[in-house]
Design a protein around this nucleic acid. Structure first.
Lengths: 217, 217
DNA sequence: GCTTTGGGTGTACGGATGTTCACCGAATCT
DNA sequence: AGATTCGGTGAACATCCGTACACCCAAAGC
């Protein structure tokens, strides 16, 4: 292998920038795969390089260190999280019950299709290096605030205090995080997955029942 | 140092079994400390040995491997969790509101006093080796079932279905896990801690309001 | 009191790790 | 067409890792 991993077999031109991006992606993918079994902090540069099929030193052409790689991974994973929020919002359900159903369905769908990203977030949220942990906390915090603002636009929350809105959105986000953690460890379209989603739906309903009666206690 | 770490300065007899237990504790403590910054999987035997003040090979007199150490740590941490449940149950509060207040107070107290154990559980729950993860999941699952049985003895849940009870207890346990995770990253008696506990109390109340109205929807 | 036991020691090894350095050759620039 | 850029290579290093081995000596057992 003369030009290393990225040597296309015989594909067209293949500019230099494309090549670099391709290798970068391969590194991110390999790291994401390796992170399914090992926390980021226990990942070695040589391990990643070997999985990608490049020599260890080539790694430095793309990232300064494993921690740097971690930051790129968390950024990518948080983009996945933002996509989740976007798709949840996109739902045009009318009733609360329909909103819950579609939101859970969107969550399941995203975890299925981006399992590695969600697994990465779940793992590193508590176990990652400080920079990674902070980034994840910030991302989830943002999610929570966006949800609170969405909730304030829903009928029934017109007269809610800001604090109570955040109480509720934080509760919902926590439940979604827990659900995502469970889905990540669950096979797609398995009975267990169905159980997890059924539980999530019911618990969200129970939470919303609580919210609905929150103000006239 | 002729007899290694455990050489008491000039204390009384100090039997062999005591010595061994003392070193074992020192290893567990050192590992618990190191785990505050590093996931278990990234912990090295030599690192632990150095922190304890023994030679690497001496480690094997107590544990077969780092994973083995991890299992001992998780066992110990789960004992802390059981103690938490015991103390939560011990509360003699009458009203739901008082039960919530005392439960949160007990949680805060336990996290304060056993911060390292809770931090270990929070970290390794998702990032730990399979054996450790399973043990933690089992421990929390047990906690949930015990709580469900406690709830069934409370007034207002006489006619609840088993499934609904677990829905609620699971929701409460998830909230407590989230709260514990936050407390672990919070300084004792800080304003942040007060905020976390206030949020936890309010959210538990909201959840119980939902539960109270759950059956007459 | 002599033997056994066992938690400690120090040395030594083969292998993995992070990082440096000089070099190469094709894509890119002029 | 010639010079430059830059993502790759491969060798070399000092350090850390887990583990095997032989040994030591005080407590425990006879």
């Amino acid at each position: 292998m003369s030009t290393g991993y990225a040597a296309g077999v015989s594909t067209p031109p293949l500019t230099r920038a494309e090549q670099k991006e391709r290798t970068r992606r391969a590194i991110l993918d390999a790291a994401l795969d390796l992170c399914e079994e090992t926390p980021l902090a226990a990942l070695s540069l040589r391990q990643v390089a070997k999985a990608v099929g490049i020599v260890p030193t080539a790694f430095y052409r793309h990232f300064a260190s494993i921690d740097d790689l971690g930051l790129a991974l968390v950024e990518e994973s948080l983009a996945t999280l933002r996509a989740l929020l976007r798709d949840v919002r996109r739902g045009d359900a009318r009733t609360y019950s329909a909103i819950i159903d579609s939101s859970v369905e969107v969550l399941v769908d995203h975890v299925r299709r981006q399992r590695r990203h969600f697994a990465f977030i779940a793992r590193e949220r508590m176990a990652g290096p400080p920079g990674v942990r902070d980034a994840i906390a910030t991302g989830i915090g943002l999610f929570e605030r966006e949800l609170a603002s969405d909730l304030s636009a829903l009928p029934g929350t017109e007269d809610w205090a800001e604090d109570d809105l955040h109480l509720l959105s934080d509760l919902i986000v926590s439940a979604m995080v827990t659900t995502a953690e469970r889905l990540v460890d669950t096979a797609s379209r398995s009975p267990e997955e169905a159980g997890v989603t059924a539980t999530a739906r019911a618990q969200l309903r129970m939470t919303l029942v609580g919210a609905a009666h929150w103000h006239h206690r």
